[in-house]
Design a protein around this nucleic acid. Sequence first.
DNA 1: CTGAAAGCGCTTACAG
DNA 2: CTGAAAGCGCTTACAG
Lengths: 368, 368
Amino acid sequence: MSHDHPIDDQAPARSRPATLADIAAAVGVSPSTVSRTLHGVPRASEATRRKILAAANELGFEPNPHARSLRTSSSRFVGMVVPDVTHPYFMRVLNGVSDVVEQAGYQVLLMSSARRADKERAALRALVSQRVAGILLATSGGYEPCGVPLVFYTHVEADTGDGRIRFTDADGIGQLVRHLLEHGHTRIGFIGGPAGTPTAQERREGFRTALENAWLAVPGDYLRVSDSRWSGESGTRAALDLLALDPPPTAIVAASDMLAVGAMRGLRQLGKRIPEDVALVSFGDPLFADLFEPPLTAVSHDAQALGMRAAELLLDQLREPSERRDVRLPVELVVRRSCGCTASAATGSAQPASADLAAVVQRQYECR
Amino acid sequence: MSHDHPIDDQAPARSRPATLADIAAAVGVSPSTVSRTLHGVPRASEATRRKILAAANELGFEPNPHARSLRTSSSRFVGMVVPDVTHPYFMRVLNGVSDVVEQAGYQVLLMSSARRADKERAALRALVSQRVAGILLATSGGYEPCGVPLVFYTHVEADTGDGRIRFTDADGIGQLVRHLLEHGHTRIGFIGGPAGTPTAQERREGFRTALENAWLAVPGDYLRVSDSRWSGESGTRAALDLLALDPPPTAIVAASDMLAVGAMRGLRQLGKRIPEDVALVSFGDPLFADLFEPPLTAVSHDAQALGMRAAELLLDQLREPSERRDVRLPVELVVRRSCGCTASAATGSAQPASADLAAVVQRQYECR
DNA sequence: CTGAAAGCGCTTACAG
DNA sequence: CTGAAAGCGCTTACAG
């Protein structure tokens, strides 16, 4: 009987998916028993257990997630809200999140806030109404407590959430600044993120601190901010503005990859040579930075690793709620040529795919 | 009474979300009536209608999607499976899809196949078990009919699905080839996608046809294929292989942006100058191609528009099933410098953000 | 125009 | 060890 699959062939229409009741009928037990067996709750008799499992298999049983969610009022979804679905950084984070979360039997439900507080609120509400088990949030200012375990990543809010994870932002900016100082720069401009967001503020403070540690004052108009979208266009504008100053900076630190890319376009528009006229370095490694002219020196971070750790933090909270944890992941300086360093080896060099590779690349260039 | 919000304040615990029954109790009607009113079915008396709407508002009612899905056995989700969540192209498609689909009251449920047929099958099954209303699929070979309206995008399967949308692949490759021919190239190599996939095959045929139309034969070893992931690394390898041939090609057409990027790295490794030693052009515009050295000539396509049209095709099918439609979206050649053209204007140029801008960029360069 | 009732497919105390 | 029963929150014929 289990060899010629009569159940399968005689199934009403193959259209209706199998239910617990179908299995129960096929085996001759109650739906309760089937449910319990499938959940491995109190050890059913080995005989019926076997029959139930076989029947479930035979019928291709998959529990109806909606029935389950309705009953338990929670789902196997983890909600993730990103500020921008088209940004490679967030997609790499998503990749890391998916891996970990699927391992644990969850699925990720992705929502975009488009960097707008109102859309973020809407996304959060939609997630709650979907009864997601937990939420991963890079906030754009729309956060409000929502009764679901929530961990912040990358863009965090102070004193809330059940967890928090981000990179060592201030330190990363500090590395960039110190590197420029080694090149002899003293007039360094900064293109930061939108005023008022914690992440942007932390990076700007990192910039200021690094300069102050070198006994360098920071002219107010050397500090620019981007629009709320951290857009490349606003990076371009900021670069144009900086170069119009008197005296203009001889080096620029961009607080994100898109801002750096925008700045690079701005400097080209002006016909400025990088790094001869202005050096340019970036917090965040844009895609294909190794192919730019000149290759862009940047602080690189492992977005996928951050996603994985973020998911783990959340999963831990789902298993048993505990104190809020605050995690920082390290970053790494990838020296290329936009800072003023010159290639010692041939110009060929692949994009660093890992920390090791980045180190190799770093060695390929020697400073001054 | 509707001014001091007594219901809100006296709510049991604010924890349990409001249900139809809550509204019914508050207004003094049956849940059936509430449900019908909220759906606007048969015109309820204006008086009760008002009261119901007010109460729903007051209580912050949001229908439980799981209860609804369980009852109707379909959800407000549209499933979308992408071969690679970290690829900017697919994320731009997603962006377009989201816009259209959310407009219509749906949400997108994103799944990755990681370009593997088995994971694609699993994703499809998960989507079906979630009772998604429809599916958008860029197949990696794991497609099987699943009883849900489905439209293919970008990577299509022959003779199935309820719709199909992609770019004019063969024509795009043809434009690249013709442009290289105008530069005087006769030995042109091709780095294609993985053998056996329809999209890769169409692009390769486009290549062959364009050359044959110019009475040029194609040596078999000038035709390379990538690995199954269309990875940059395999693009690099292919470029290395092509340049090791005797005689080597004087120009290379890459069938995707990642393959072009990989090829560029390969050519750098060999110390080859682009375009002096080898010209390089790409089907698909990588992010930041304008910042490359040299800026990459590429066929550009509007991924977001494709996403929007794909979603519309699917939505149409959901409204009323009809014949399968097969849509092609046009592509556009963006001439930069890797083909051998030289900049007439200053080198500064922003990444083309729209068709218009692309045209402007194109005008900035003059051929030969 | 409106209500009572059934049922979607599951889970989980509560009895036996 | 197992079954009968209730109930999660909705929708939708079916009566009135």
